[in-house]
Nucleic acid binder design. Structure first.
Lengths: 333, 333
DNA sequence: ATGAAAGCGCTAACAG
DNA sequence: CTGTTAGCGCTTTCAT
């Protein structure tokens, strides 16, 4: 970067006003006479002046930039959340610094620290774990944070989610009513708040409520091939209905079932807990708990703008409605 | 953002050195005596000092931030490119400001201008169109730009791509050798450089070389349902082999064919030109021109780091090798 | 090897 | 409504 060619000072000189007035014009401050404003604007256009956001940031202590923490870039679940975030960010003129934390090159807290050093005004956090170190960094720098599509057991961070327990219960119930009694749940990391405190308890409660003794919880099933390989186990365990948290995992199971010459949904019903595009284009199409991902992102970002401006927010834990979308991987259509 | 609690000045005072020396320590300048360095580092750790990147940016005129322009967030093609970019960016300690331009709320050049105002050190551009206004903005601000997975007819911007003409020719040839003589090409925007100057010419040349008179070029087919709806037309036109640029579009065609009770690849062969995960999990799996998306992103970002540091680059137009990956949507497996 | 001092480009009291 | 004056927190000559 070379020295900036035209600065606020040049505009001031050409328009025969002080920098302060130019600054007022830029920032839409109403305390400027119409004539003056127009004269300044004319000069701005003539010189093609563009304010230096870094200097603005240093002087005003606001960067109009928010950080986005995402576990993986190549996961449509986060991409769809991000889209909602991005639209609202654009609306409120915030830029987004995105940081994926899947990379083991740098530890998560270093990634977040580097974000904080950039003086972001706020953070949307989509990872399903929030280590103490990271939480402390947020608190120390007094940076507003909103969790999107995930939860934390500390109550202090705002969040936007769905009612995972209710959704899972409803999904299990659907399969149960289809006559499936040997139900299973397939998750990735069993220790995340969403899994440990919501999904798995809901599953266990369902079993208890229906006097089912045998529990089938499969953990650390993270991707397509994990799903594909899991089916032989499911078959061995006599599972006839399964709820899967990641849809690409569900597709792995789906393909495995079909390759084994079995039938979906007759031999196995599948319900996936996140409805990204991938769940709807495979055949048979997957019945899903349709989370309103775009809206969740949008609501999270909107809430963040309020927190950044110290506005009132009514309730920092928002739950949005989901929909149980019946497709071809369950019987009762 | 409140006033920063601990600044370089505090560290200087506590360590009994000048700000200049602290700055040298932070930036790894070797002109600091070992003892002094250690004393300063001790204070930095004790006070938990973190440099303010905004102030650094203003003073040094480098923000260690790059801009990423992406057409859509929810497209795995760009997501996989982005992952390669992100990994290399992390390696060289750059942050990424991502801007999607799918949003019609703000015009593209405004989005780019806002990025430039943030004083990004460079830009990776993934949109398939580069308007004059945008190109001029890049030139005026002297910001290095690398196009990733796309081309521009101006020769001035660096790019990382594959040889689209060669790839398409090879794909067409595969289908031709399978006995398919009524070949078609399906694209989105027909006026992008990649389509207009590469894919479509390659298709036409193939027809000419094989004395095929009838041309089937379908344009503005952008998404799953466009693809799904297109099949009736393809059938009417007697098309028996098709090359599709977007894989989700290809999946639309695929499902439409199957719903019509036809067979893939017997009745229709499909080759998709971008191998994202979605192409590999559907059944039948799609034969694809496998672009090395991750590598393309990584190479683009590496090249950008060189441009930002005024280092030598040998050739600003890089073509990476692709692979024609035969799956179940073509006969000759 | 270290320090003093002058900015980087802008905002924000404060005064008038 | 407008100008003056301090900074914001850091880097970077230029001396020494």
């Amino acid at each position: 970067m070379h020295k900036q060619e035209v600065t606020i000072y040049d505009v001031a000189r050409e328009a025969k006003v002080s920098m302060a007035t130019v600054s007022r014009v830029i920032n839409g401050n109403s305390n400027v006479r119409k004539e003056t404003r127009e004269r300044v604007e004319a000069v701005i256009n003539r010189l093609h002046y563009q304010p230096n956001a870094v200097a603005q940031g240093l002087a005003s202590k606001k960067t109009t930039t928010v950080g986005l923490i995402v576990p993986e870039l190549t996961n449509l679940y986060f991409a769809e959340l991000s889209k909602g975030i991005d639209d609202i960010a654009l609306l409120y003129k915030y830029n987004i610094i995105i940081s994926s934390i899947e990379n083991r090159l740098m530890k998560e807290d270093e990634v977040i620290q580097s974000l904080l050093n950039k003086q972001v005004d706020g953070v949307i956090y989509m990872s399903n774990r929030l280590p103490d170190k990271v939480a402390n960094a947020f608190k120390q720098t007094n940076t507003p944070v909103v969790l999107a599509g995930t939860k934390d057991n500390r109550d202090e961070f705002a969040s936007v989610t769905i009612d995972y327990q209710k959704a899972d219960t409803e999904a299990l119930n659907l399969m149960y009513n289809d006559g499936k009694k040997n139900l299973a749940i397939v998750v990735g990391d069993p220790d995340t708040v969403v899994n440990k405190d919501n999904r798995i308890p809901a599953y266990r409660k369902f079993l208890a409520d229906h006097d089912i003794a045998e529990e089938h919880i499969y953990t650390k099933i993270n991707n397509y091939s994990d799903g594909y390989n899991l089916y032989s186990q499911l078959e061995k365990d006599g599972v006839d209905g399964v709820i899967v948290t990641r849809d690409v995992t569900a597709v792995g199971i789906l393909n495995s079932v079909m390759d084994a010459g079995k039938n979906i949904p007759k031999d196995l019903e599948i319900i996936t807990a996140s409805a990204t595009q991938i769940a709807s284009v495979v055949r048979p199409a997957l019945t899903t708990i349709k989370q309103p991902l775009y809206d969740m992102g949008a609501v999270a970002m909107r809430m963040l703008t309020k927190l950044m401006n110290n506005e009132e927010v009514d309730g920092i834990h928002v739950q949005l409605p989901y929909e149980l979308l019946k497709k071809q991987s369950t019987l009762n259509q």
